[in-house]
Amino acid sequence: MRLLPRLTGTRPATPLRRRRDTASHRPGPYAVGHVCPRVRLTLHDGTERDYLLDGPSSCPHPWGPHAAYEPRVHLAHVLARQGYDARWLAGFADLPLPAAERIAESAARAGRT
């Protein structure tokens, strides 16, 4: 007496596929002309470029050519918004003092959290 059918050598009639998630094809919550918060800085490498102030998850195209993401700049921006001064930020995040001052200025414009 056979209790289970033999499965070796049998194939399903239709290929198994995952259903498409229609929500993933919708446009994101960002406007078409979204500009990520950024600041122009010169860090230890000596090259002046735009750096993102927020994390890459808040930008629709974080790895695009428009701005670089540096975790130390993001950290300094978060701490500056909490009230830390530029000298302390420069030492804590290992940033040049002029860069830390510009980050603190942009954080002051954005307001404290």
Rank of each mutant, 00 (worst) to 15 (best):
A23L: 10
A100P: 13
P12M: 11
Q82I: 00
G91E: 07
P98Q: 02
R38Y: 03
L53W: 09
E101T: 10
R49E: 08
R72A: 15
D50K: 00
G55A: 04
W63Q: 00
H66P: 04
E101V: 06
S57A: 07
H44V: 07
P96R: 06
L16G: 14
R20D: 03
P71M: 02
D50I: 01
P65Q: 11
P98R: 05
A100M: 03
V78P: 15
W88V: 00
L3G: 15
A99L: 02
A107K: 07
W63V: 01
P27R: 03
R87C: 00
R26G: 06
R109I: 11
L3H: 15
E70L: 06
H44E: 09
G91C: 03
R49W: 00
E101Q: 11
G83D: 02
P37C: 04
T22N: 09
L53K: 05
G28W: 04
M1Q: 10
A86M: 02
G33V: 08
A23D: 10
T42W: 04
A107W: 09
P27E: 02
H34C: 08
L79A: 11
R6V: 14
D21S: 08
G46Q: 03
V78D: 13
P71L: 02
P65M: 04
Y51H: 12
V73Y: 01
R81N: 12
G64Y: 14
P29Q: 01
M1H: 13
R109G: 07
L75K: 13
R49P: 08
P65R: 11
H44W: 06
R109F: 12
G111Y: 07
R102L: 00
A99S: 07
A23V: 08
A67T: 10
A68H: 11
L4E: 14
Y84R: 14
E101N: 05
T14E: 15
R26C: 05
L75P: 14
R19W: 05
V39D: 02
V78Q: 13
L52G: 12
A68Q: 10
G111E: 07
Y51W: 04
V32D: 15
A68L: 04
G33S: 13
A13P: 15
P71I: 02
P27I: 01
T10C: 14
A80T: 00
R87M: 00
D45K: 05
T22A: 12
W63S: 02
L3D: 14
P27F: 01
T47C: 06
A107I: 12
A107Y: 09
R17E: 12
T10L: 14
T10G: 13
R26D: 04
E105C: 01
R17V: 12
P62N: 06
L97Q: 04
H25S: 05
Y51C: 06
T8C: 14
S58R: 08
R11F: 15
R19Y: 06
S24C: 09
